[in-house]
Structure formats: C-alpha cells, structure tokens
Design a protein around this nucleic acid. Structure first.
Lengths: 132, 132
DNA sequence: ATTTTATATTTACACTCGTAATATTAATGG
DNA sequence: CCATTAATATTACGAGTGTAAATATAAAAT
C-alpha cells in the first residue's frame, strides 16, 4: 500500500473535479467533467469506485447520496506523477526536462518574463536561506 | 494506427537503449539496460516483440540474429509523452508545468543560470525571426 | 407497508502490461 | 544432410484500464 496510489488517466479526470470542489456527489462529478469527455454515468461511477478502493478518495453518506472528498492532495499526486514521468522519459533528469520544454514550447514574452522572475527569486532565496 | 504508438514504461527502457546505439541485437539490448533492471532474457524479447508489433522499431536479419533499429525518433516520442503527461496532470498548460517544476526542483546556481540563458535566447530569437 | 426510483455494488469483457515458459525455426557443426 | 544450438515467435496468466450492463439496496412517495 504505497502512500500515493497509481491513478490512471481516466481517474485523473475524476480527481481533478474532486480536488476543485469537494465534498461532491457522483452526479456533480459527472456534470463537471470537461465537455469533450462523454462517459456514461456508470462509467463515472466505476472510476469513483476504483478510486475508493485505492484510497485516493473517501466519502460521507448524506441521506440518499454519497459525498466524495480526496484523501490525497493534488500536490502529492502531481509530484508522484511528475517523478514517474521524469524517470520514464528523461531518466530522472529534471533540468533536462525543463530545458526540453523551454526549447519546444511556444512561450509568449509575458510567460518568458514570468519564468525568469521565478528563476531570479529562486536564486535569491537560495542565497538568503541557510543550506539545510 | 497513430503515427506515434503508445510506449509503456518498460518499453521505454528498451527504446532508450535502441536510440542510443543501433542497429543492435536483442542480446546487446539486454546487456545495455540499466544495472538496476533485472529482466530475464525472455522478458526483454517480449518487449522487443511488442515494440515491433507497434511499429516502433524495425529489424534487419543478419545471419542468425536480428538487428533492431528505431522507426520513431526519440524527439517524437518525448514530445508525445510530454503532451500526454501535460494533458493528464496539468490540463495541457505547459507554463503551469514548468512553473511547478522550477518551484519544486532543487536547482543549482549553475542550472538556474543555464535556464535563464535559454530563456533569454528564446526571447531574442523570437524578435529576430519573422513570426510564422 | 409496498412500489418506485435514485444510488451504489457486482459483474463483464476485451485490451494492455509485467513477467516469463514453451515451442518453433533457422543456422552451424559435423 | 541431420542434429544441436541459438535466436525468434507463440502462448500464458494475473493485474490494471476503459467501457459499461445488470443487480442490489435504501430512501421516498404513495
């Protein structure tokens, strides 16, 4: 039982909805999925159940319906998924990956500036903070 | 039959070896896998066969053994995999992803400088080149 | 209390993946 | 040419996924 369960592609869609607003009913989840996703109600419930089984989400009963909420944070999941992706595709080298993205992506001037600001801040923070 | 086939985690390991040096025999592929991977010979050949079936690689006979070579470039595969990852985890927002990485990753001063240089170059190139 | 109905649980089924064992084919040694 | 061997190809099998239908259960309405 790894802390962070493996979440499949379809399950990610469900999780994103639940992270955005919770607790939430199955019906609302189905409604709030991106428009280009066309799953039957049953399919949505199947994914919800699998997420329950994986302990990625929990629920509280309220009258007739269940209200689901996350048991793992988006942060954790993004981190885990990123690690896995990094390892698979770039052999774990984060800088290689960022480089690749910067080179391939179409970035607007605004975005470039924003990223540069983040980098600069990171540099300054590093100076100021004692290494630990 | 999508141009770029879906390559599984294990298959990526095989592909990385083949991209690095090819044409290459199954035996050599097995030998050149990272040390922490311990697959039986048969397992390696299973993955090779699946990659053949997916048209990710091809081969030429030479006497007793086959020599395998890639039919899809690393570039293409990295791009496809990145797209898929981006879509799944960040809803397709590349800048969001880069931001996240920059914020989470432990970057050395050297790396930060290198990334900044890349960003600066990108900015300049954009100016110089006519938009297309 | 019984029927309806909304909701959740169980079951289904074909495909991919990780992990091989077994079988077949082709080259090489004799 | 035939047997041995080395390499490839076929088959296997359980877990996970995408996709849902069928069934059970519990709440609401009558």
């Amino acid at each position: 039982m790894p802390r962070i369960p493996k979440i499949s592609e379809s399950e990610w869609e469900i999780m994103k909805v639940i992270w955005r607003s919770n607790p939430i009913t199955a019906e609302q989840i189905a409604l709030q999925l991106p428009a280009d996703i066309e799953w039957s109600d049953q399919t949505v419930r199947t994914f919800i159940n699998r997420l329950l089984k994986k302990n990625a989400i929990g629920f509280e009963k309220s009258g007739r319906s269940y209200h689901y909420y996350p048991l793992v944070s988006e942060q954790e999941c993004v981190r885990a998924e990123s690690q896995s992706f990094l390892k698979r595709v770039f052999g774990g080298a984060a800088d290689l990956m960022v480089t690749n993205f910067l080179e391939e992506a179409q970035l607007s001037d605004k975005e470039i500036e924003r990223l540069q600001r983040i980098l600069t801040e990171k540099q300054e923070n590093k100076d100021r903070r004692p290494k630990m």
